[in-house]
Write a protein that binds this DNA or RNA. Structure first.
Lengths: 266, 266
DNA sequence: GGATTTATTGCGTTTTATGCAAAATGAATT
DNA sequence: AATTCATTTTGCATAAAACGCAATAAATCC
């Protein structure tokens, strides 16, 4: 068999360590040494030394008095202190630009922050007066396309945790008023793949947004197009949403840089 | 380096890979190969292969068209899907028990979840009627000792993000009413190291809680003691708070299991 | 208390990670 | 466009380190 010349060099023991990390992270139970050894197909002693290395650095930890492994605080610290939004901006900016220029309207990139959606990047089309959504702006989750796209996967109980028992703040006639209505909206978004905003936050504004998903499905942000209803007509929804969904998918793929693993030989 | 002579076996290349991860995570800029090589004190080619291994697995990634490294989505996924509260319960339960038994009152462990504090574990003292705070209960952040302890490090703008512009929900006469008042309260908590609840959520209940911090200072949970004011007198604050703060610190140390594996003997 | 499982350590051997050097790539300068 | 300089990437021989084996220690189970 002709082997692909471009074999990515890789460090076995580091790779094994990462496998351990992922195994421990995805297991609901603490993971024992034996399980790790079997998973990697190596001797217990090897698994032991790998796990010890991870523990020394705080990437793994053991429940008090136990020998098996759980994730350590280093993982927690690392992921929390890292500026993920910055990474998202970097990766998505090109696509955002392409989207805005392709449709000649303003495109936004948003993430969830607390009980709001936060615009972390935007590209304004040329010759178009900017009407809304500066970078850095916080908007409600339940009354904007971006916000709803970010909520798309949540169940009723999760939504209740976020919004509590109070009535949802009302901004316009079309703002979603109740939690059950929001739940239904989320189902629709999951089915269609995108969310719309029919002047639900600002009068006279329309918006389409799609959730950006990692390859495991997790929603990490949203991308969308907004414009005054005078220019963004109802008949545009079909084509705009297609572009937005495609763009969101592309960004998701860019974020999930695990393509090369498939190219491996057995 | 005055590092403890470690008989702990460790895998060099895995350890180096972890160093890379941490370096990339703590850098605000993408990190170049040269920087990694220098940091590790190895040849560029070695750093290259380590970084490639991390990238293959999605732990690192490169900005579009660039060669330097940023954190990859695997880190994101891992830390998000892991059940951190479960880990916290495991690590803290012994201490929680000791605290409750030592003071003979109910002790709680809480984390922040959205705009609420969530009780994830509790130990009830013997012979004491349980009055509040079952595991799984959600309570407001601004009107409970646990909630305020969890907010302690936030600045005004962060608090505004969480609570929005609306008035803070009022539960009792003593509930904190305004955001500026909450900001001031947070400053006090940072100085004292603990938060108190003077019947701010439930009439007739007192509570002391302290933030649990990782060794880098990040608040990841809170621990505290609650009881009816009839039994938890004002003059108890001094001693109770001392115990609670100590307990929080101990849990924080247990979570930050960076080096002290040697201490786990016998 | 003995037996069985699981975790840990020591050691010789083989694998593998490494540094070197050279090739490719890319950026900057003229 | 040609040349330089810097950085990334590949090939390879060798030193180093990771590995499995086997022995020992610690836990767990009867």
């Amino acid at each position: 068999m002709p082997k692909k010349a471009a074999q990515i060099p890789f460090i076995q023991s580091l790779d094994r360590g990462l496998t351990i990390l992922q195994a421990v992270a995805t297991s609901r139970q603490p993971v024992t040494l034996g399980e790790l050894a079997e998973l990697l197909g190596v001797d217990r002693s090897s698994a032991f030394r790998l796990a010890q290395t991870l523990r020394r650095r705080g990437f793994l930890s053991s429940p008090a008095g136990r020998k098996d492994y759980i994730l350590g605080s280093a993982m927690w610290t690392l992921s929390r202190q890292y500026d993920w939004s910055n990474m998202l901006v970097r990766v998505a900016h090109q696509e955002l630009k392409a989207l805005a220029n392709g449709l000649n309207e303003t495109a936004h990139l948003a993430i969830r922050e607390g009980k709001s959606a936060l615009f972390i990047d935007s590209v304004h089309a040329r010759h178009v007066i900017v009407v809304a959504g500066q970078t850095g702006e916080l908007v409600p989750l339940h009354s904007t396309a971006h916000g709803k796209a970010l909520l798309a996967d949540l169940e009723e109980k999760d939504l209740r945790t976020i919004f509590g028992a109070e009535a949802l703040p009302k901004f316009t006639k079309t703002t979603i008023k109740t939690l059950p209505a929001l739940v239904k909206e989320c189902v629709g978004i999951r089915e269609r793949g995108y969310a719309v905003d029919e002047a639900e936050y600002m009068e006279g504004m329309r918006c389409v947004a799609a959730p950006i998903r990692l390859n495991n499905g997790m929603i990490v942000g949203s991308i969308g197009i907004s414009a005054p209803a005078s220019r963004f007509l109802k008949e545009h929804y079909s084509s705009y949403s297609k572009s937005v969904v495609l763009c969101a998918r592309k960004i998701g793929e860019l974020l999930s840089t695990s393509e090369e693993i498939a190219a491996q030989s057995a």
